[in-house]
């Protein structure tokens, strides 16, 4: 009998939830360690209003952080990648900084930007900036220069040469960087909210944890996960579109 794949997925999801609920109901695990699905749903009553207020606050931080990381990351990446001097001078420093966990800078950022949204935005944007900039640098350094020669031979120059022949070549690796960078921004903002803040989803997750209200903690995690998935989705579509030719080329390599 043919069962549609989404029906099968739904079935497995419900099965998992049922087993999870059964384990909790049977008292096999302490509710402080593992909240049951039911208690997560019921947590809406205790923490729902706090989270409802926190969502726009955190989303605002995330959106601003993403904009900053995208613009600065792609901008700096193109600047560095297209300049031979900057490629030699700055690209290695970027890679080196990217290799160090950024969280060690957070206490300093707190002093500079305070407990509010600013320090979260700066920290999140900084986390996203590096993978985006590095991917863009690599893209700008390593695209096939023969397409420039081709474009010139066909009479293109200046912005048109760039737009028709270079930009589409750079797009797939840049979008890959944007995807990684975007999730880094979200992670950075949630983490920094959990460490030191007075508002936001991360703040409430951390607060409910100290009060051992595990169901409310899980609700916050669920919200954070949904936000990540929601942000990732358009990028996945975009990546598939812009990179379709590249994937197809790789798949047929050697044919």
């Amino acid at each position: 009998m043919a069962v549609s794949s989404s029906a099968r997925k739904a079935f497995y999801a419900i099965l998992c939830l049922a087993i999870w609920q059964a384990i909790c109901s049977a008292g096999l695990v302490s509710p402080i360690i593992l909240a049951s699905p039911l208690s997560i749903v019921l947590a809406v009553r205790t923490s729902g209003s706090e989270y409802l207020a926190a969502i726009p606050f955190t989303l605002f931080e995330i959106v601003v952080g993403i904009c900053v990381a995208w613009i600065l990351g792609v901008g700096a990446g193109l600047l560095i990648g297209t300049s031979q001097l900057l490629s030699v001078a700055i690209a290695p420093i970027l890679s080196a900084i990217f290799a160090v966990p950024l969280i060690v800078w957070y206490p300093i950022m707190l002093i500079w930007f305070g407990l509010g949204a600013e320090s979260k935005i700066v920290f999140g944007a900084a986390g996203g900036f590096f993978p985006i900039a590095l991917n863009t640098v690599t893209a700008a350094q390593s695209f096939d220069r023969r397409f420039v020669t081709l474009g010139r031979s066909l009479g293109a120059s200046g912005p048109r040469l760039y737009w028709k022949f270079v930009f589409p070549l750079l797009l797939p690796p840049i979008i890959a960087g944007l995807r990684i960078g975007t999730s880094f921004v979200v992670i950075g903002i949630l983490v920094s909210e959990m460490i030191a803040s007075t508002e936001g989803i991360g703040f409430w997750i951390s607060t409910y944890r100290t009060m051992f209200q595990t169901g409310d903690v899980y609700l916050g995690i669920l919200l954070a996960l949904s936000a990540c998935m929601l942000l990732n989705w358009p990028l996945t579509v975009l990546e598939r579109r812009a990179g379709a030719w590249r994937d197809a080329e790789l798949l047929t390599f050697g044919r």
């Binding site: 397409f147 020669t149 081709l150 028709k164 379709a244």
Partner: peptide, 10 residues
Amino acid sequence: VFQDALLLPW
């Protein structure tokens, strides 16, 4: 006409 056709792959 170049050695590799250099067609824009997209």
